[in-house]
Amino acid sequence: KELVLVLYDYQEKSPREVTVKKGDILTLLNSTNKDWWKVEVDDSQGFIPAAYLKKL
């Protein structure tokens, strides 16, 4: 599985998104959309702007 590093805090703005903190390491589930990547946070899944993430 691929991991990503969160570069900036992000507060979810819709139920399909997730809240993350700078420095979090998350599992990347889908990066086919260049603007929004799907990640797994704890036991939930959701989208975060790709610009907030860096592949490890």
Rank of each mutant, 00 (worst) to 15 (best):
1 K>C: 14
1 K>S: 09
2 E>T: 13
2 E>G: 10
2 E>P: 10
2 E>R: 12
3 L>I: 07
3 L>D: 02
3 L>R: 09
3 L>C: 13
4 V>I: 04
4 V>P: 00
5 L>I: 12
5 L>C: 09
5 L>P: 00
6 V>I: 03
6 V>W: 02
7 L>C: 06
7 L>M: 08
7 L>I: 08
7 L>E: 02
8 Y>F: 13
10 Y>N: 01
10 Y>V: 01
10 Y>G: 01
10 Y>R: 03
11 Q>F: 14
11 Q>G: 07
11 Q>W: 13
11 Q>M: 12
11 Q>C: 12
13 K>Q: 13
13 K>M: 12
13 K>A: 10
13 K>S: 10
13 K>H: 09
14 S>A: 09
14 S>N: 12
15 P>H: 10
16 R>I: 12
16 R>P: 06
17 E>G: 15
17 E>P: 09
17 E>Q: 12
17 E>R: 09
18 V>W: 14
18 V>M: 13
18 V>E: 02
18 V>G: 04
19 T>L: 05
19 T>Q: 06
21 K>F: 10
21 K>S: 09
22 K>E: 07
22 K>M: 07
22 K>Q: 10
22 K>C: 07
23 G>D: 05
23 G>N: 05
23 G>F: 03
24 D>I: 06
24 D>R: 09
24 D>F: 06
24 D>A: 12
25 I>T: 05
25 I>F: 04
26 L>C: 13
26 L>T: 01
26 L>M: 04
26 L>P: 00
27 T>N: 09
27 T>A: 09
27 T>Q: 09
28 L>T: 01
28 L>W: 02
28 L>Y: 01
29 L>C: 05
29 L>T: 05
29 L>R: 03
31 S>G: 11
31 S>F: 05
31 S>T: 08
32 T>A: 11
32 T>E: 14
33 N>H: 11
33 N>L: 08
34 K>A: 13
34 K>N: 10
34 K>V: 09
35 D>F: 15
35 D>N: 14
35 D>K: 14
35 D>S: 10
35 D>M: 12
35 D>E: 11
35 D>G: 09
36 W>D: 01
36 W>A: 03
36 W>I: 05
36 W>E: 04
37 W>H: 02
37 W>G: 00
38 K>H: 11
38 K>F: 15
38 K>I: 15
38 K>P: 01
39 V>H: 00
39 V>K: 00
40 E>P: 00
40 E>I: 10
40 E>S: 10
41 V>E: 01
41 V>W: 08
43 D>T: 11
43 D>R: 10
43 D>L: 09
44 S>H: 15
44 S>L: 14
44 S>G: 14
45 Q>I: 14
45 Q>C: 14
45 Q>H: 11
46 G>K: 08
46 G>L: 15
47 F>E: 04
47 F>H: 05
48 I>A: 13
48 I>M: 13
48 I>C: 14
48 I>H: 01
49 P>E: 03
49 P>K: 04
49 P>D: 03
49 P>F: 05
49 P>T: 03
50 A>T: 06
50 A>K: 07
50 A>D: 02
50 A>I: 05
53 L>E: 02
54 K>A: 10
54 K>F: 11
54 K>Q: 14
54 K>C: 15
55 K>H: 07
55 K>P: 11
56 L>V: 10
56 L>A: 04
56 L>G: 02
56 L>F: 09
56 L>P: 02
